[in-house]
Design a protein around this nucleic acid. Structure first.
Lengths: 228, 228
DNA sequence: CGTCTCCTTGAATTAGATCAATATGTGTGG
DNA sequence: CCACACATATTGATCTAATTCAAGGAGACG
């Protein structure tokens, strides 16, 4: 029987539907001593640093986490935001290649990698789902390369808003956990450009800024058309 | 026994050393009817298009392949270049998300995905190595995001030259298979900026352009320092 | 030798960055 | 409740790196 590196497999439909959702099978790990309870972090607290030994990976229970890299000049590139149910910090090598920080107060479950490996060896579904998850991360990362390489500030912001809406949607309204600086570092822009572009979107009637962190996507179609 | 989602595993040392190298275990597939011989493509010929059914993936035997996405305005983003021994076109979903084209004349071996899945189900090493390979792709993709998001034209070019040198190195001299346009589309720049930046590198003594496609990296250290 | 593609270089333009000032909260302590 | 400090966000005025537009040059090939 295939271990389902093929992902047309219907058993994983649920996983595939929620982009970035963690393999549900990880839940089982909690019962096998692989997980060590849950951890709480306050906003801006570091979860692990670049170069730290990667003996553990995590799943977000609540709140939002960012993974990022720092440049020698102090600037920052945010690689990804992780929300409820998503996995982060799973590494191929022995060290964390990026650091992870709490964007908002958040709770995460740590999983010991060694324990996970053992379980993955026993249960094909665990391995298969993790594989599926990593493939999904790869797809996201490739999409980001396109975004960062060839898109204008407006296109980046539009894509960002739609991405956030796809994850944390409550109607058209999204509550951003992150600051303008976070958004800028995610999109390869400056905080001023992010702010200006959002203001412009509001003038054009694409969005409405209830407050700085609360955005209403009034015209999703218009936003989508920006990235045709 | 673990299926080696852990990559500290020494059996895979060789795979890990050569960045982007395909799992050697794929060689075995040729003997099992999974591979269908080898295919030849001429420069600029399409291997598959975005949206094509992803029943097959490939390994490069010789030559260079690019995978890319086209924007509605005709511009192009190249996601990756694949050289000898590298795998491309392995998808999570049922369609190819990017198109693939021959950069130079090249030979590739096609593998039927269904056959591969079956084999992966029987042999943990196949699955584990493919997992390792995908993790490596993910790392590369993440590094690219940093490059595209936060680096200047000179930094992008320096990183590109060092990447190429790391793969196809013959001393300090690299023979680029791709055009300036390919490089530009890979780095999110224009052809003119690529050309100007290379000329500037030559004036600064960092490189020497024997011919348009042949570059000698006279000062690797200097190039590396650009991305400190 | 002419034609074609690829590459280089120059001049003008512009999107986004940088620098600088002001505004909008938000929590603290009086 | 107000006054203050402090972090975050917006807006304006320049500046600049990279793009765009335009013109040649260099090599390959019939």
């Amino acid at each position: 029987m295939s271990m389902s590196l093929s992902h047309g497999d219907h058993r994983f439909a649920a996983v595939q539907a929620g982009i970035g959702q963690a393999p549900w099978v990880l839940d089982a790990l909690s019962d096998q001593g692989v997980s060590g309870g849950s951890l709480h972090f306050e906003a801006d607290q570091e979860i692990y640093a670049e170069g730290d030994e990667a003996t553990t990976f995590y799943k977000v229970v609540s709140g939002v986490v960012r993974s990022c890299k720092f440049l020698s000049d102090g600037r920052r590139q945010i690689d990804a935001f992780y929300g409820e149910g998503e996995i982060f910090g799973f590494e191929a090598g022995s060290e964390h290649r990026l650091s992870a920080e709490a964007v908002s107060d958040c709770t995460v479950i740590p999983y010991r990698r060694r324990g996970f490996d053992t379980l993955a060896g026993r249960d094909e579904r665990v391995a298969g789902q993790m594989f599926s998850y990593v493939m999904r991360c790869l797809e996201r990362s490739q999409d980001r390369s396109l975004l960062l390489g060839r898109r204008s500030a407006s296109q980046k912001l539009a894509a960002f808003l739609l991405e956030m809406s796809g994850r944390r949607a409550c109607g058209n309204v999204i509550d951003l956990a992150m600051t303008r600086q976070d958004i800028a570092d995610y999109l390869g822009l400056t905080i001023e450009t992010v702010s200006r572009t959002l203001s412009q979107f509001e003038r054009e009637g694409l969005i409405s800024l209830t407050s700085a962190r609360r955005v209403c996507l009034c015209n999703m179609k218009g936003l989508r058309e920006l990235n045709a």
